[in-house]
Design a protein around this nucleic acid. Structure first.
Lengths: 258, 258
DNA sequence: GCAAAAAAATTTATCAGATAAATTGCCGGG
DNA sequence: CCCGGCAATTTATCTGATAAATTTTTTTGC
């Protein structure tokens, strides 16, 4: 079992194929299982099991004589952590980041409001810990991004709702990607005060306030993304000189990643 | 290939095992693949492929010598349509319905607000059509539940955001389950007026109003569920006579399913 | 010539059996 | 008591064959 970067051959192949499918390879047809086995130098069982796993995630479907085909992307399980990861690995996309952030705009403010219902829960302590890390990070004693992520994750956990907890992986990925974007902006600071407000609102059981502050926090990120997209379009349409000015303006209003 | 209720044997086994796992069988250990093959009278390849698909959904994991084990439920991909379906098939649970509805409270108001950004889109027509069906249903000329579902789905579609569209299956399931619950209440009407308000707000591009109305709509469902849960607890604690009165009170404030 | 039926070809689905690899647990030696 | 090696168990992988489903081609009947 000479496996390259994973636990076993099936895992490796699933990973390779998943990335390739999401990346848009195979748009002119997916190979047959015997072709796949041959080109990858693997047995049919490994090939079939990898294909089956991708089928379970909505990426593929197979029928006798017809062969295996890539499903249209609106059938993909985008909320599956693997699919999501493959989607992001292929390239940075402002559009995808925006769609992501729109989802966060739905999930996280509500999560904060739910968390506020459990002020006394030990889960709230985890939010406090994360906030302490953010403060430490602001003083250069901790990692800013990690603390930020931990804060948002802790709130999802504190909802006591398994459906919200499912978004942990997504938010983690979103913030990792987000930082890649917000780093373009000079004025990027993690926005400690607003995070502190969210914590305070949760701690005092003010669900509506927690929701509102979290909403504003993410909405600002969304604003930055929209601005950047307008800039991109402007760069395409007009000559480049104009867009540079606009980008400079955008920098002035830039806020944190989340 | 004498398949029972599906397209093929692997599909059947995946379905059977998925339901069983989520239903809490196998809490004292999952069988080995040779045992599984033997008890179901299937070849090892079929067994292995079914297990691999469930692994892809986070329900199982397998390691040599250790065997195949059921993952703790917080690792399950709850947002996977199959997992979700299995979860609901096992039994009606007020708790699950509430957690569901909390998620809807996050997703759908935001979806309505996003849809309002595309007032001119043809997707808005689909919402109008669904609303027309709801009106027809109110007059006894169409199916109330189906029209209701179509309305909510149409809004998710109109977001132009693939992540929101992923919730179609979930909302569909939630509403089907929801009706099972709201039917207990005598005053159950589909709440046409509020739905009309959402449509109107979307049509005029008033995102905030669309969000607010949709929020209220779902929050009312949530209120009913909470009341029902309090009743259940009361029934447990006290003698049953008291709860009957409370249930009667709850009926008076009962609203639609969504 | 054309339509329906039959046959052929292709691809996945399933079965069977063997070997390899990984992991655990035991047991003996120090 | 701990550590290394040996044995046992279970999944992982390979191979080859047959079955089933579906499409394509060919043949047949009129």
């Amino acid at each position: 079992m000479r496996t390259v970067d994973g636990r076993n051959l099936t895992y490796d192949l699933r990973e390779t194929l998943g990335r390739a499918i999401v990346g848009g390879a195979f748009e002119e047809g997916f190979p047959t299982e015997s072709e796949l086995s041959r080109t990858h130098g693997l047995s049919r069982s490994v090939t079939r099991e990898a294909v089956k796993m991708l089928t379970a995630k909505g990426l593929l479907s197979a029928r006798p004589r017809v062969g295996t085909i890539v499903e249209p992307s609106d059938r993909w399980n985008l909320l599956d952590p693997d699919v999501l990861r493959w989607l992001l690995e292929r390239q940075f996309s402002l559009d995808l980041l925006r769609q992501f952030s729109e989802l966060r705009l739905a999930i996280e403010p509500t999560a904060a409001a739910l968390a506020a219902q459990f002020q006394s829960s030990p889960a709230i302590t985890a939010i406090e810990d994360a906030f302490a890390r953010m403060q430490a990070a602001a003083a250069g004693q901790d990692d800013v991004l990690k603390a930020d992520i931990q804060f948002h994750i802790a709130i999802l956990q504190a909802t006591q709702n398994p459906f919200f907890r499912q978004f942990e992986e997504m938010v983690r990925t979103a913030l990792h990607t987000s930082i890649q974007f917000t780093n373009r902006f000079s004025g990027h600071t993690a926005n400690i005060d607003q995070h502190g407000d969210v914590l305070e609102a949760i701690r005092t059981g003010e669900g509506d306030r927690a929701r509102a502050v979290m909403y504003r926090l993410i909405d600002e990120v969304l604003g930055m993304i929209d601005q950047a997209q307008r800039d991109e379009n402007a760069e395409e349409a007009a000559s480049s000189a104009v867009a540079v000015v606009r980008r400079a303006n955008a920098n002035e209003t830039a806020a944190g990643a989340g």
